[in-house]
Amino acid sequence: MSILSGPGAGLVTRTGITPGDVVVRAGRSTLRFDRRAVVTTAILVVLVLAMIAVSLMVGEYRVGPGALWDTLTGHPRRRLDRFFVLDRRLPRVLVAVGVGAGLAAAGAIFQRLYHNPLASPDVIGFTNGASLGAVFVLLTLGGTLSTAALGAAVGALGTFAIIGVLTVLGGLRGARLVLVGIALEAIFTAATYYVLSQAYLPSAAVANAWLIGSLSGRGWGQVAIVAVGLALVGPLIAVLNRSFHALDLGDTVATTLGVRGGRARLGLMLGATVLVGLSVSAAGPIAFIALAAPHLARGITRTPGAGIFAAACTGALLLGISDLVAEHAFPAPVPVGVVTVSIGGVFLLWLLVREGLRHRV
């Protein structure tokens, strides 16, 4: 037995726990972690920080590591260092990290709750509902990108209400959930195109470019939206995350373990929905991060129930790298949504083939 003492907590490995498990005890609460998952998640955090540093240094105006450190610590060597690092690149990469983390966390929650590898916000209609709400605010109500956050949240919550009602009435699970999501996606997309067709042409062009999913021109206003959303929803998800293992065993067993299945599911879905709405409002409907990141996190950690935090780190890293590719790998910069759709399309085909082969076996 090894013990790491600390104020009010202990870190122990015990007999009866597999050698790869780490148990954290805080008061009456006991949390068990897979050692590989803890290590790989820590590595993911380091990679995210490295990706942020690279994003701040590269570009037409290059900033060296020393100049970057001086700028971040408040002593820029040149005025242009401060402009490019703090005013241009830092808000963009922070939005990428926040949006990637939010979408991936939402995808992990949906996939775990519905026990469906395809149950992600952009497949079952949540992203399209949020996009419709944001576009309606932008073009019909004459709002700004900041006020579009409210429209995106309302659109995502409306989709949440529809899915919730259909789940209660029809017991949506498995393939039926995906089919209903595809139907909702088609309806919301049609409504979005109708709003675009009725709008003033220059405004419609701006909104249409936004619908591709882009981080270009993102500033501290979008950083604030994403940060506030994560700060408000993160603690709720962290508290309810412990209910997943009980929910996996069914509502009856969960109730005997002291977990109210209905409330836990509602809270988790509501938190995921808010994350989707805020992410869409900040960067547009960036596709496939929510679908791919949880699968990649499970593959990296080799844990079937890889934690939401591991998925969030994977999503942040994936979107950050995709934005670097979109910004620097082409003759002219392209929206990051183009890169994520290209990667996601290949990933989705691979996922469908893998699931088909698994069911055949």
Rank of each mutant, 00 (worst) to 15 (best):
L324Y: 00
T140S: 13
L291Y: 01
T273Q: 10
G181H: 06
L157Y: 02
A191L: 15
S342T: 12
P19V: 09
V135G: 00
T314M: 15
F288C: 07
A148S: 15
A106R: 10
L90Q: 04
T140L: 10
Q198N: 11
G345S: 07
V168F: 13
G271K: 04
A207N: 04
A204L: 09
G213A: 08
W350T: 09
T40A: 15
L145D: 07
R89L: 08
S281L: 03
A272N: 11
L236A: 10
H295T: 01
A254K: 01
L257Y: 14
A152I: 01
Y61T: 13
D251H: 03
L351W: 03
L247H: 09
G129K: 00
G337M: 02
D81C: 08
T301V: 06
V223S: 12
P19F: 08
A246K: 04
V280A: 04
A312G: 11
T73W: 07
P304V: 08
A161T: 11
V54K: 01
D87F: 06
V63N: 14
A42H: 02
S342H: 00
A283H: 06
A156K: 03
R78W: 13
L318I: 07
P7A: 13
V12I: 10
I289A: 04
F244K: 10
G10F: 09
L201W: 10
T147D: 00
S29T: 11
E60R: 13
L291T: 02
F160Q: 09
A207F: 01
V353C: 05
Q111C: 11
W69K: 11
P235F: 05
I300M: 14
A290L: 12
R79F: 01
V228A: 15
G98M: 10
F160G: 08
V137C: 02
A329H: 08
A37T: 08
G129W: 00
I17K: 12
G10M: 13
I187L: 11
G129P: 03
A227I: 03
I43H: 00
A224P: 04
G337A: 03
A183C: 14
V280T: 07
S5V: 08
I289C: 05
P285G: 13
R14D: 07
P335Q: 07
G102P: 02
L172F: 12
R77C: 04
L86Y: 08
T15G: 06
P19N: 11
M269P: 10
L278E: 14
I212H: 06
L157I: 11
R263G: 15
V346H: 01
L318M: 15
G213W: 03
A53F: 06
G125Q: 04
A67T: 11
V226W: 02
T144E: 07
T71M: 02
W220G: 13
T147F: 01
G267A: 05
L240A: 13
G20M: 07
V178Q: 07
L196M: 08
V63Y: 07
L118G: 01
L47P: 03
A292M: 15
V93Q: 07
L236N: 03
P235I: 02
V336C: 02
Y193Q: 13
G258M: 11
I289R: 03
V338D: 02
A152H: 00
L352W: 05
